[in-house]
Amino acid sequence: MSHIASLMMSLATKEGVNDTAVEGIKVFRSSAYGSRGPMCYSQGILIVGQGKKRVYLDDKVFDYDPQNSLVMTVPMPVECETFASVEEPVLVLMIDIDMGQLNQLIRLMDEHHKLPKNLHESRQSGYFVAVNNEDIECCVERLLLALQSPLEAQVLGKPMLQELLYRLLSLPNAAPLYALALSHTRLSRIDKALSFLHRNYGHSVEVEQLASLVNMSPSAFHRCFKEVTASSPIQYLKKIRLNKARELLQEQKLKVKEVAIEVGYESAAQFSREFKRYFNQSPGECARL
Rank of each mutant, 00 (worst) to 15 (best):
G37V: 00
P77W: 09
N103S: 14
Q50W: 01
M72F: 12
V55Y: 12
F83K: 03
I95N: 03
V55L: 11
M99C: 00
R36I: 07
N68R: 14
I106R: 01
V74I: 15
F83D: 08
L70Q: 05
P66L: 07
I47L: 10
Y64T: 02
A84F: 12
M39Q: 05
V78C: 04
G34I: 14
Q101D: 03
E79H: 14
S69Q: 04
Q101F: 03
D59M: 02
A32H: 12
F62Q: 01
D63T: 04
P77Y: 11
V48N: 02
F28P: 06
S30G: 14
I47Y: 10
I47C: 07
A32E: 14
V92I: 15
K60D: 10
C80E: 15
P75M: 11
D98F: 03
I97A: 11
P89C: 14
M39G: 00
K52Y: 00
E79D: 11
A32V: 15
Q101N: 01
E79Y: 10
C80N: 08
R36E: 08
Y56R: 02
L70M: 07
S31G: 12
V90Q: 09
S42F: 01
V78K: 12
C40F: 13
E81I: 05
E87A: 13
G44D: 04
I95A: 04
I47Q: 01
I45K: 02
M76L: 14
D59S: 07
S30H: 15
E87C: 03
L57H: 03
C80D: 05
C80R: 10
E79T: 11
E87Y: 07
N103F: 08
S85W: 07
P77N: 09
N68F: 10
K53T: 03
Y56S: 02
Q67L: 11
M94I: 14
Y56V: 05
E87P: 00
M39H: 02
L108I: 05
S30K: 14
P75V: 11
D63K: 02
D59C: 00
E81Q: 14
L70A: 06
V55D: 00
Q67K: 07
K60G: 00
A84C: 13
S31A: 13
S85R: 07
I45Y: 02
I95K: 03
K60V: 05
M76S: 04
L108E: 12
P38Y: 14
A84N: 09
L93T: 07
Y33D: 04
Q101E: 01
G49H: 01
T82Y: 07
V61C: 05
F83I: 06
P89I: 15
G100F: 11
N103A: 13
